[in-house]
Design a protein around this nucleic acid. Structure first.
Lengths: 184, 184
DNA sequence: TGAAAATGAGACATCAATGTGTCATTCTCG
DNA sequence: CGAGAATGACACATTGATGTCTCATTTTCA
């Protein structure tokens, strides 16, 4: 029970704070189907919950990202797999990146995931699967933006999950142009 | 002076709330280089400032979008122009769309801009410039996401403004793939 | 079953943000 | 210049979120 409750609170915090960081602890407790008393037993201060949610979100992304990479042959394959994993953890992505400065200086803020993805991107550029005349930083931003957009489309029932993943990967690689106009 | 002060407060509110909606009125007053007293004279309650900022952001987007459309020949041209205009008003875009539910039910919340862009998108699909096998809703989401990403890249000095616009439009139409792999 | 753990309910105290006033100072413009 | 508008600097009350505590109830597990 102990772990289940903690998990419910963290999930609720990430789900709510990913959309609105001003959500109160009362809101989170309600979402987690837990009393505010219990929430305070697990996380005595608001900041403690922020830190734990941050650590949990980072861990989830790393964990799922790791799993997604098995069996990939090219760097582009890896990016597609990471995008799928990111969409499946849309709340965590959104929570981490909705405000790039929110966690600046927080010891639990870990940019290694950024570094990992950037590595895959530069590798994909070297392999010729990703345009080499655009900065990796821009590509990383597009990568996360499309994950966000796909997660949002799923959450609002605009697209089924599998369709959202396909369309996001396709948009990432080829854009939404018809394809018959000359690429740059 | 009266109008200038009001404008400074609205700009500060949009700039701060676009990144962090929990920013306090004190933060906004400081950013606007104005005392909290003055802020309260212009906007007696927090909600009044929220409403005014919302109305101002909507108006700015509509106004700049309108201006951007002159001289466009194709619907794809219009989308490119709208994207440029959006990036130039990145704070307003971000403020309006960072939380799609924040302004639900607010009388100043106007979805007509959404409708306008959706119209251009379907027109572009009919003209053959935009893929017709993807939902307009998805394309709209990608459109705004790339505006956000470009505005963020500019704000963090990763890309100069003109370069960000170019790269965003190109990504919108052709993605970040190298282009020599078969498009869908 | 029965003790220990976990939880819920609620009464507080505290604190930061917000809202409301007053008064002095600065500025704008006739 | 000088009156009126605009602003800044406070003091203060209010409010909602947060943090702390106690006690009753429920759940878990040996």
């Amino acid at each position: 029970m102990r772990q289940r409750t903690r998990r419910a609170i963290l999930d609720a915090a990430i789900a709510l704070w990913s959309r609105d960081f001003s959500a109160s602890l009362g809101d989170i407790a309600e979402r987690a189907a837990v009393s505010r008393s219990t929430l305070h037993r697990y996380f005595p201060e608001r900041q403690a919950l922020v830190d734990a949610a941050l650590a949990e979100a980072v861990a989830a992304i790393e964990r799922e990202g790791e799993k997604a990479l098995v069996g990939c042959r090219t760097a582009v394959d890896e990016l597609s797999a990471l995008m799928r994993a990111g969409i499946d953890n849309g709340d965590a992505i959104l929570f981490l990146f909705s405000d790039p400065n929110r966690f600046a200086g927080n010891p639990y803020w870990d940019e290694s995931e950024d570094e990992d993805v950037l590595g895959v991107i530069t590798r994909a550029q070297a392999e010729g699967g990703i345009a080499a005349d655009v900065t990796p930083g821009w590509i990383l931003g597009v990568f996360y933006s499309l994950i966000y957009t796909a997660a949002e489309a799923i959450a609002s029932d605009q697209l089924p999950r599998h369709r959202a993943v396909d369309v996001a990967v396709r948009t990432f690689l080829h854009g939404v142009g018809s394809g018959d106009s000359g690429a740059h």
